[in-house]
């Protein structure tokens, strides 16, 4: 499924629903405490710019992320989800992110299977030293979600 940029922003999953003109995506960012959260801090302290659409939640490790968190975010207010943890091999708890990435793959595929565009949920490994990478990742995700338009599927407020 190709995504095209249109004049009017419509939801990819529900193309008949248009976004208000001033629509800005809400992106849930779930970041591991030891790398990505520190990385996002560094982005800030280095005064790098990134889009303000992300709402960050800190978790002890990427393996703390139950697929439930992703589902819940999508169902509540988020238009997209970004989950970020330490690079493979760098997890503070040795192997947390190895377990986590198995769950992420399955979750991502299942969400796509039931009709969510695959860019709705994205993952990244960002270390504490990668401030610029964090800015880049957030910009990319925000860009992607802007193209997809607002998420209307199974939203609490619509039903």
């Amino acid at each position: 499924m190709e995504t095209e940029v249109k004049e009017k922003i419509v939801s990819i999953e529900k193309p008949h629903l248009e976004a208000p003109a001033d629509w800005q995506p809400v992106i849930m960012g779930i970041l591991c405490n030891w790398c990505s959260y520190a990385g996002s801090d560094l982005t800030g302290t280095s005064r790098l710019q990134y889009p303000p659409n992300i709402r960050i939640i800190r978790v002890p490790c990427s393996s703390r992320v139950d697929p439930w968190f992703i589902i819940k975010s999508l169902q509540a207010s988020a238009d997209g989800v970004l989950i970020s943890g330490c690079h493979p091999g760098d997890c503070h708890y040795i192997s947390g992110n190895y377990y986590a990435r198995r769950r992420f793959l399955v979750t991502k595929k299942l969400l796509n299977f039931v009709g969510f565009h695959e860019n709705r949920v994205q993952f990244s490994w960002v270390s504490a030293a990668e401030g610029p990478k964090f800015a880049k990742v957030v910009s990319k995700v925000t860009e992607d979600i802007k193209k997809l338009g607002p998420l209307h599927l199974y939203k609490k407020e619509n039903i």
Binding site: P88, R101, R102, L105, S124
Partner: peptide, 11 residues
């Protein structure tokens, strides 16, 4: 887990 689990979907 396995060290060779797919990773290409992660940025």
């Amino acid at each position: 887990y396995s060290l060779s689990d797919p990773d290409d979907f992660i940025m």
